[in-house]
């Protein structure tokens, strides 16, 4: 049974990298199509639309981050990997905010990004504002990241 704890903890780490990464892939892909469309018309907007394309990409990074600190904590990257079942489940729960919010926010952020790319195409001088709309969505990914980080660091001190 003791291996099950490790399994669930790793499942959490994998899910956060997997779902958040998948969301970002979808998001960056979608925004990339819009960005490419703008560049066909006006190549000078490349750097601006590239920034906007990258905005939904951060969730994947946050997912990687959570996966990595979970793996360090549970000893997959070396060290003691003896995790009780309860603790393993706790790690799984701690990873879920990043996994799920990461996926959903990346998908929706990409829609805001696509719209912002359209805005920049029509009014290149409004880049500053265009950038803020997708950034608003990202707030929730950051909050989820925060909860996941604090929970994972917290679990290390829980004695079960």
């Amino acid at each position: 049974m003791s291996q099950l704890g490790l399994f669930f903890a790793l499942l959490g780490a994998a899910l956060s990298a997997l779902l958040a990464g998948a969301g970002s892939a979808v998001g960056v892909g979608r925004a990339g199509q819009a960005a490419a469309g703008v560049v066909t018309d006006d190549p000078s907007q490349f750097s601006k639309v590239l920034l906007l394309q990258l905005l939904p990409g951060t969730q994947g990074i946050y997912g990687l981050l959570i996966a990595f600190i979970t793996m360090t904590q549970i000893g997959i990257m070396g060290g003691d990997s003896n995790i009780s079942l309860a603790k393993g489940l706790l790690y799984l729960a701690a990873c879920l905010p990043m996994a799920i919010v990461g996926y959903i926010s990346a998908c929706y952020q990409s829609q805001a990004s696509v719209a912002a790319i359209g805005l920049v195409a029509k009014r290149p001088d409004q880049f500053g504002k265009a950038m803020i709309f997708p950034a608003m969505v990202e707030t929730y990914a950051i909050l989820a990241l925060l909860v996941s980080i604090l929970a994972i660091f917290g679990i290390a001190n829980v004695n079960i």
Partner: peptide, 23 residues
């Protein structure tokens, strides 16, 4: 005020990912 928690999250993101690559 809670929105400023991004200072922690993004700061940690930089250092943890840097640690990943170092490792």
């Amino acid at each position: 005020v809670l929105s400023y928690s991004r200072l922690l999250a993004l700061g940690l993101a930089t250092s943890v990912i840097a640690t990943v690559f170092n490792k």
